[in-house]
Write a protein that binds this DNA or RNA. Structure first.
Length: 305
DNA sequence: ACTATGCCCTTAA
DNA sequence: TTAAGGGCATAGT
């Protein structure tokens, strides 16, 4: 099964942070600590100076880091990850796209064509829990911390995150192995590196050389993940909306469970799904990372103009 | 017997 | 008017 999903992205501007530093992951640590600080220590809106002080850095460094990382000021970034912002996105409507609507959307939209090709594994292969599948994996820096990237010969099969320690790497690998326990895993950091780099540069995904993604899951899961691919960058949708879209309007909770099992973090944008209230209800790789991804993508749109 | 839900209800600021 | 929290229907693994 092959399907082209069109995903919104800025047409002609480079992604913020797509310069030399995008893959270094060096900035993410400060971003992560900032997001954590905001969401735990503070209920209200701390000033930039207060945040910088609490994180033992300077206001200018904080400013520069966010600009480099997200193309956004810290203030704008923090604004982008509030519940109010999510609510506003929901209130503005959910321009979810699907294959049937693709053709009609070329009009005034500034979205460029972006294709992710994905193929569902045969039911047999899934039942076997990855039996007979050769998976190559590698670790690589990413804008959201150290990432594990898993691929078959047919394309990208998994993305997860590590806390950059040896135990973190082991845990990230174990997380992937748990999904396909019978698959054969072999490590090849250098071999995976180009794919990892592409996966985190959505601005460079093109129809002419699509980023191939292999979705391995049950029918229901694959339907949910396909629906995720139709959420434009910088937009959010809800679990119940996805449930409606895949024809199971009374199964928002099952959708949540399936979204939580999405193996290809970031590329299959499960971070763009929030609760009906606008609250960020959960994320397999940590709510902080979900916030960071949403803020980072807000930076993409800010450049679009 | 688990969920990354959502709705309804009550209660307390 | 909100926010927070308990109870419960719901569907897929």
């Amino acid at each position: 099964m092959t399907l082209h999903a069109r995903i919104a992205a800025p047409a002609d501007l480079p992604a913020p942070g797509s310069g030399p530093d995008i893959a270094s992951g060096g900035d993410y640590d400060l971003v992560r600590r900032t997001v954590e600080f905001i969401s735990t220590a503070f209920r209200g809106q701390p000033t930039l100076a207060e945040i910088a002080h609490a994180l033992q850095t300077t206001q200018t460094h904080l400013e520069a880091t966010f600009r480099r990382w997200a193309g956004l000021s810290p203030k704008a970034f923090l604004q982008a990850v509030t519940i109010d912002h999510a609510r506003r996105l929901l209130a503005e409507g959910l321009p979810l796209l699907d294959a049937a609507h693709e053709v009609g959307l070329s009009g005034p939209s500034r979205l460029h064509d972006l294709f992710v090709r994905h193929e569902a594994m045969s039911p047999g292969a899934h039942k076997a829990r990855g039996e007979g599948i050769e998976l190559t994996y590698g670790f690589s820096p990413s804008p959201f911390g150290r990432a594990i990237v898993v691929a078959t010969g047919r394309g990208l099969a998994g993305i997860g995150f590590s806390d950059a320690s040896a135990e973190g790497d082991a845990a990230a690998l174990a997380d992937m192995v748990r999904r396909w326990p019978k698959a054969r895993f072999s490590r090849d950091d250098a071999g995976i590196a180009p794919l990892a780099a592409r996966a985190f540069r959505p601005d460079e995904w093109r129809a002419e050389s699509p980023l191939r993604v292999v979705l391995i899951g049950t029918d229901f899961e694959v339907r949910v993940w396909e629906a995720l691919l139709a959420i434009p960058v910088g937009q959010a949708t809800t679990y119940s909306d996805i449930a409606t879209r895949i024809g199971s309007p009374k199964a928002p909770r099952a959708v949540g469970a399936a979204v939580g099992r999405n193996p290809v973090s970031f590329v299959v944008p499960c971070h763009r799904v929030v609760g009906r209230s606008g609250a960020l209800t959960g994320y397999h790789w940590g709510l902080t990372r979900k916030r960071a991804m949403l803020g980072w993508e807000c930076g993409l749109l800010a450049r679009e103009g």
